[in-house]
């Protein structure tokens, strides 16, 4: 009886340990799997040609990712520009000024907003944001736009990453000890001065980490961006021009993947680029985040 229990325990431990290591391997497997699939393309073309050429003509065997990388970067950048100030303001208000009940209520709002599927955000974008951008473009800037544009994609994306960034900034702000604030207040600072000079300064690395995570999240968003971005491959920084992102490229073309040679490999390479960039940003941001949390 005693032996059986210990034996069961030993077997169980072994199984659980193996399972844990398998998850560690999963990240590695994803990277290698995608990389191996894109080998066919990489063997055929030098990598600098792929990354720095904007010619995307699969039927002619030309695969240049520059336009798509540029489009993804622009959409992400615009989205961050909109979302970051907004989320820092909201997070600071909720953490520093709001009562506990208000904070809890808004935490629920954030959670619910985060649980809405991206297709719904996309549809909302098509119904509300796209006509709005079209109007703004024609009335204020005289740009004739269909509304399916960089700006629409960025706005929808900004709304999608808002709850995400706020959640993390809130977590960072809550780890800062109350005595620091009290010290500042006792010196005669107003609440805002205490926040500006003490809390935000202390939280800065954590806030930057939150932005990094938001960036990674925005970079890989597929459906919502694809539905409102217009999906025309061109390099343009005008917010009213359509754009095309890497995830949208993959999702739009998976159907004809096997009809053209190297096409499947090319799409998997696109996924690999996405994976690599997002992995990098995630790892750096989480390391910063952990450091901040440990220090406070």
């Amino acid at each position: 009886m005693e032996k059986l229990r210990l034996f069961k325990n030993r077997i169980g431990t072994l199984l659980m340990k193996t399972l844990s290591f398998t998850v560690l391997l999963l990240l590695f497997a994803m990277g290698t799997g995608l990389f191996l699939r894109s080998q066919a393309l990489l063997a055929d073309k030098p990598i600098s040609d792929l990354l720095f050429s904007s010619a995307w003509r699969p039927s002619a065997g030309e695969y240049g990712y520059l336009t798509f990388i540029f489009g993804t970067l622009m959409v992400t950048l615009y989205a961050l520009l909109i979302a970051v100030p907004f989320s820092i303001c909201a997070a600071v208000y909720l953490s520093e000024y709001a009562k506990k009940r208000t904070r809890d209520f808004f935490k629920s709002v954030i959670d619910i907003l985060a649980s809405i599927p991206s297709v719904i955000f996309g549809l909302w974008g098509v119904l509300i944001i796209v006509p709005m951008v079209k109007e703004i473009g024609s009335v204020l800037f005289g740009a004739s736009s269909t509304g399916y544009s960089l700006l629409s994609a960025a706005l929808v994306l900004a709304v999608m990453i808002l709850p995400f960034i706020i959640h993390i900034v809130l977590e960072v702000l809550q780890t800062i000890s109350v005595s620091l604030r009290e010290a500042a207040l006792a010196m005669g600072a107003t609440s805002w001065q205490a926040i500006k000079h003490v809390v935000l300064r202390k939280a800065l690395p954590g806030i930057i980490a939150a932005c990094g995570l938001g960036l990674a999240r925005a970079f890989g968003e597929t459906m919502a961006v694809m539905m409102v971005a217009g999906n025309i491959a061109q390099i343009s920084i005008s917010p009213f021009e359509p754009t095309y992102t890497l995830p949208a490229l993959i999702a739009n073309n998976y159907g004809e993947m096997f009809s053209i040679p190297l096409y499947d490999s090319a799409l998997m390479f696109a996924a690999f680029i996405l994976f690599a960039i997002i992995l990098l940003f995630n790892i750096i941001s989480w390391i910063v985040f952990y450091r901040v949390k440990r220090r406070l």
């Binding site: 998850v23 999963l26 990240l27 497997a29 994803m30 799997g33 995608l34 995570l213 990674a216 999240r217 970079f219 890989g220 968003e221 597929t222 995830p247 993959i250 999702a251 799409l267 998997m268 996924a271 996405l274 994976f275 997002i278 992995l279 995630n282 790892i283 989480w286």
Partner: peptide, 15 residues
């Protein structure tokens, strides 16, 4: 887990 959480679903799909 944190890093995996941040990987977008399109990459999971491709993988």
């Amino acid at each position: 887990f944190n890093v995996l959480w941040g990987i977008p679903s399109i990459v999971y799909g491709a993988f």
